[in-house]
Design a protein around this nucleic acid. Structure first.
Lengths: 354, 354
DNA sequence: TTGTAGGCGTTATCAG
DNA sequence: CTGATAACGCCTACAA
């Protein structure tokens, strides 16, 4: 107790001693878990400010409580790439909502394939939400399962008894295709999302399709091909407007082989296709119909309303959050299947008569 | 030790006992902090798998070590809004890098104005990075300072002894203005970022400017007005392409009062202005010069290269991360001032002769 | 190389 | 309403 000790931060015990009460009493003053006489509370609070005590140490509290109040969100690939995607950000929003009761923080984690010492294995979190579980992600899944904490997977397959939040990607895609078919289109091209982590741009051959690991892309393509079995498809390297424009140019450059409609697997890609069309002097939807997927507000496409399938991105996140909350309460988590809704905009119309 | 006990998760002590070694030995096997005979290690590992022990409990470990391995990033406003901004995402990238040595996770936090029980006050984190410290943010700052943890502020004023990462917004803006002045422009209009948390769109009057709380907007405007003291300015409600287009239309609609150049305080806004100009049939840079700020790759502006001031967004984040790392090592944090670089693109040229 | 013991700062429980 | 006490699960001197 000599004064040359390192000025260790005050603990709740110090405060209690200083205030002349028991540690437990001081604890209760801060947690509010029981009633305390106003006078005692004052004394404790006074002692606290005097000692510069800023409240219970969260680390100690989480050990004691067995809860850290943090939920990990595991994203595939670069964090920044994830946040470039409006669907992801919307989902995060929903997640925050769904988790609101827990007032839990969200810890962003990448799915780093392995190694010990990884954040995945050592982060002091109460639960995990995995997003877009594919390929590498499966390794992460192992680590996470091993920790025995609640896990929820959004748009991915996690196997045995792990609650999933899924979308009717195939059916929704078929709806879009049917819409175009009904308008009279027979010559349709497809722009898919990236098929796996190489993110290679190019024609989607049966071989590449078989090797694809991104379920979303595969499922949506399946739906589209239910209606247009022979529609050619090109995979984009990512969901970006400029990427859509690039693929769009590939598709539209040659007037002879130009389709009457292009279906893109995301709104950003679709916006890019619209851009490519306009560059080439084609009018949308007069000369070319374009449809997307997601139903997000595309920044920079103000003059047109995209025909698209509106996915409940916020709901997806919220559902995941709610399941996590339930599981943290000891109830079993359940899977949820959400559906998309076709929204007909101003970018699709009957093909021009030739 | 009766078998009807709740099947409590195994602890490292259980594993040790099961393997017939001391707890400390088992601990060392997992932490790798000392050499252990291969045979003993095997036995410990075997015992662990047998008991379903997935490694040390991070909560207990962080209490013991006094570190949780998590750094909080406090953002102003909605999380999703923050991530809609490419500069922010780039910065987060840099931050991740700067923090790499610590292999720390990043906990996303909003600056919720106060209340106890807030994540800001209770999250088990080792340090804080505050971004765009303004207005409400100051309350958050109080809470955070109270906790006595390392704090770094990016583009904001945190007062007394708190390391800041700042940008030469004023000087860089003056550079842009000078570039346009040199080209011969005298009739220039400005589109500013939002001035405060209301995000009101409209003419920037001296009164509004005086009440502005967003330093970045104010500083950049000051730089521009060094060169064009009388340039009219309109504040945007946020940094988005569509918002830039909206303000752009306000500025360009009337041919009589139309400026020969528009300087926007962000690239996204500038892209919107370009869009508005194109809609009105104006050519950029032939009929109108447009400049931005940030130097990001604007998704959806592929045909033009924006004249802009390239800010070291990634470096900003990295610098913050490095300071945090230093402070966590017990060294004092130091402020860093970073500079932008003018990049002349294809959107500015001499004004048309009239 | 392995074992022992003490404490990290809280909070839950239970008695007064 | 307040107080004593025992964990929470781990780590790390220090001793053997």
């Amino acid at each position: 107790m000599s004064s040359r000790e390192t000025p260790r931060r005050a603990t709740i015990a110090d405060v209690a001693r200083h205030a002349g009460v028991a540690t437990s009493t001081a604890s209760v003053v801060f947690s509010g878990k029981a009633k305390v006489a106003a006078a005692t509370r004052e004394r404790v609070l006074a002692a606290a400010t005097e000692l510069g005590y800023a409240g219970p140490d969260p680390r100690a509290a989480s050990l004691r409580r067995g809860r850290s109040g943090i939920v990990a969100v595991v994203l595939e690939g670069e964090l920044r790439a994830a946040f470039l995607d409006p669907v992801t950000t919307a989902m995060m929003d929903g997640l925050t909502e769904g988790l609101a009761d827990l007032s839990a923080g969200i810890l962003l984690l990448r799915d780093e394939p392995g190694d010990e010492g990884s954040a995945l294995a050592n982060a002091p979190v109460d639960a995990f939400v995995l997003i877009g579980c594919s390929g590498r992600m499966r390794d992460s899944l192992e680590v996470v399962r091993g920790r025995g904490l609640p896990v929820v997977v959004i748009e991915g397959d996690a196997g045995e008894g792990i609650p999933r939040i899924t979308l009717d990607n195939t059916a929704a895609s078929a709806d879009i295709a049917r819409h175009l078919h009904d308008l009279g289109h027979r010559d349709v091209a497809i722009v898919t999302l990236h098929l796996n982590s190489d993110r290679e741009r190019g024609v989607v051959t049966p071989e590449r399709l078989a090797a694809a690991t991104v379920d979303v892309a595969v499922d949506r393509l399946a739906g589209l091909r239910q209606v247009f079995p022979d529609a050619p498809a090109i995979s984009a390297s990512g969901s970006l407007i400029d990427e859509g424009a690039r693929v769009g140019r590939m598709l539209l450059a040659d007037a002879a082989t130009r389709p009457t409609a292009v279906i893109a697997q995301s709104d950003l890609l679709a916006a890019g296709v619209v851009r490519a069309a306009e560059e080439l002097g084609l009018r949308v939807p007069g000369d070319l119909s374009v449809a997307g997927f997601d139903g997000i507000a595309v920044d920079g496409l103000s003059h047109l309303t995209l025909t698209t399938s509106v996915q409940p991105a916020v709901d997806k996140g919220r559902a995941a959050g709610e399941q996590v909350a339930r599981m943290l309460h000891g109830e079993p988590g359940t899977s949820q299947h959400l559906t998309c809704r076709l929204r007909v905009g101003t970018t699709t119309a009957a093909p021009a008569v030739r």
